[in-house]
Design a protein around this nucleic acid. Structure first.
Length: 517
RNA sequence: UCCGACGUAGCUCAACGGUAGAGCAACCGGCUGUUAACCGGUAGGUUAUAGGUUCGAAUCCUAUCGUCGGAGCCA
């Protein structure tokens, strides 16, 4: 129950009671159309009435708040300074000095310290508090007090505490732990303060993406996850069965986006993306979430302008709304404050020269690795576009530059501070004949792309788009070392569920999958 | 797939050829303002597994399994 629900409860109960009494009177008069008859049994109506009458009595004689303290979220507790409230949550930690207990409570909205001196509560209750272990679920009643010593500004002077569910030997103690252990206990690790901060920032980033796109005329139209063939022939796909056919988990919604862009103009899709690449790095997940906008009648220049506005907005929005979370994570926000459009643009040619000057052995025509990306990104205090890659480094649908056919009209956006590529995008080949040649050159089956070629046959237009990996953006904005903490249940090379390490002797299958993870 | 690092108490680590140790968590006790609280005590180990070298192996060697990081690939 939310704060407002709780605060309004007496009035609402009284109103509802009034309605029930009228309904009962109608029923007594033989009104068979009474809608309540079908909703409530006679017994439950009586129960409701007696409760309602109790509520009414309380209201008329004494302030109800004394007998029924409102349930408050910890984040809203400031509204009740000096008043009693109920907090429903979990015990994060406990300190005790014999005659006084300090209980750190969390409820998902925040954390607050409950203080109980021996004389504040009943002897049984004081004893009970002494036995509480980490992560016991409780309903605590106490008086909210502003206190300078409290990190959140408020404390709870406890009056009572009820145990909802006990907890014994919670594995994640308040001391340090290794990542492997924490990943094995990911389902419990999510209760800790840093994980809360990260996942709140993730939520804010997703909201910011949706809000910006919505405000700029983009319609969300999601692409399918089960697909019949590779969007990009080069990378590995997860294969699955589709009745008697083979199907693959989507590695991009891009081709479908091109169809919906021809239908709606500006569109985007947002969903999980799967790459069966055996990548074991801090930047890779097997399953990640990608947001992919696509625009009809847009050339690559406009594409980059949209991207820099989009990314600047996301960063500004997180700085505005999630300062506390960034602070919790120890993020240096001054670096994020510099992320303002326009972003620098570096051509692939310039990038190669820069890298060669920096002593990297790179030849024109090769793609950049993580090291190279970091060298390039380090030169700027905001994200940098690297554009006009050689055509042979890129997917078949990338449009070649008409003035320089050996390079594509595309760009990657590299985040600063070594976070690497967060966006890949470009202008799509809109000429049917050229596209057909490309499909042939890449050794892809022509039949599978009939529908895709249709888009060039019926009113083709120049169009562009990009894909942004949400987890990489979260890792960058939060300043994390590893991408695995940016998603609730990461799918990594050797990890499918919190407790299951994969081994070749133990093939993957539905039986390995834990419910809900 | 390749390269590198690692595997010791529930957790984080120490011991580096000579009796396996500490902090946290658990349990018992103390403490009325603590902020990964603190203080005293108890319990907790076939040192990943299997071989080998040695008078003696957590330590050296071999294999297997597992974890982490990096490369390739990419968002």
């Amino acid at each position: 129950m939310g704060l407002l629900d709780a605060a309004c409860a007496p009035a609402r109960i009284a109103r509802k009671a009034n309605g029930v009494m009228k309904a009962l009177a109608r029923e007594r008069r033989g009104n068979r159309r009474n809608p309540l008859s079908s909703l409530f049994s006679r017994e439950s109506k009586q129960r409701f009435l007696s409760r309602a009458e109790e509520g009414c009595t309380c209201m008329s004689e004494s302030p109800l708040v004394e007998t029924l303290p409102p349930v408050s979220l910890i984040s809203d507790v400031g509204r009740y300074d000096g008043q009693p409230v109920k907090i429903k949550g979990w015990l994060r930690n406990k300190r005790s000095s014999g005659k006084i207990h300090f209980l750190i409570l969390r409820d998902g909205s925040g954390q607050i310290q409950g203080v109980a001196a021996r004389n504040d509560v009943s002897p049984e209750c004081f004893e009970r508090m002494g036995t509480l272990q980490q992560e016991t679920s409780v309903i605590a009643t106490g008086i909210v007090r502003a206190d300078e010593r409290a990190p959140g500004g408020y404390e709870l002077s406890l009056r009572d505490l009820e145990i909802v569910g006990s907890s014994e030997n919670f594995p994640i103690s308040p001391k340090e732990h290794g990542v492997d252990f924490l990943m094995d206990n990911r389902h419990l690790w999510l209760r800790s303060a840093n994980q809360h901060a990260i996942l709140r920032v993730r939520h804010e980033i997703i909201k910011a993406c949706e809000d910006w796109l919505d405000a700029h005329g983009f319609l969300r139209i999601d692409a399918p996850i089960l697909t019949p063939a590779a969007c990009e022939g080069t990378t590995t796909l997860f294969e699955t069965e589709y009745f008697e056919y083979k199907a693959f988990l989507s590695q991009s919604g891009q081709l479908y986006n091109e169809a919906t862009a021809m239908a709606f103009g500006r569109v985007y899709c947002f969903g999980p993306t799967f790459r069966a690449e055996k990548s074991k790095t801090r930047r890779h997940l097997m399953e990640f979430w990608m947001i992919e906008p696509e625009m009809a009648f847009a050339e690559q220049e406009e594409n980059m302008e949209v991207q820099e506005q989009f990314v600047s907005y996301i960063v500004a929005r997180v700085l505005e709304k999630r300062k506390a979370e960034l602070c919790q994570l120890g993020r240096d926000t001054s670096k994020l404050e510099k992320v303002i459009a326009p972003f620098p643009r570096l051509s692939y040619d310039e990038a190669v020269l820069t890298l060669q000057k920096a002593g990297k052995e790179i030849q024109w025509g090769n793609d950049f690795g993580g090291d190279e990306e970091t060298v390039l990104a380090e030169q700027f205090d905001r994200p940098v576009f690297v554009h006009s890659y050689p055509v042979r480094c890129k997917a078949f649908y990338m449009k070649a530059d008409p003035r320089r056919p050996e390079v594509a009209r595309c760009a990657d956006l590299l985040a600063p501070e070594g976070y690497g590529e967060i966006i890949g995008g470009g202008q799509r080949e809109d000429d049917g004949t050229t596209l057909e040649e490309r499909i042939k050159e890449h050794g892809l089956p022509r039949e599978a792309f009939d529908w895709y070629l249709d888009l060039r046959k019926y009113g083709t237009v120049p169009h562009s788009g990009f894909g942004m990996g949400i987890e990489r953006v979260v890792a960058w904005i939060c300043g994390l070392e590893h991408i695995r903490e940016t998603i609730p249940f990461p799918r990594m090379l050797s990890r499918l569920t919190p407790h299951t390490h994969l081994t070749p002797a133990r093939p993957t299958g539905p039986s390995v999958q834990a419910p809900g993870t």
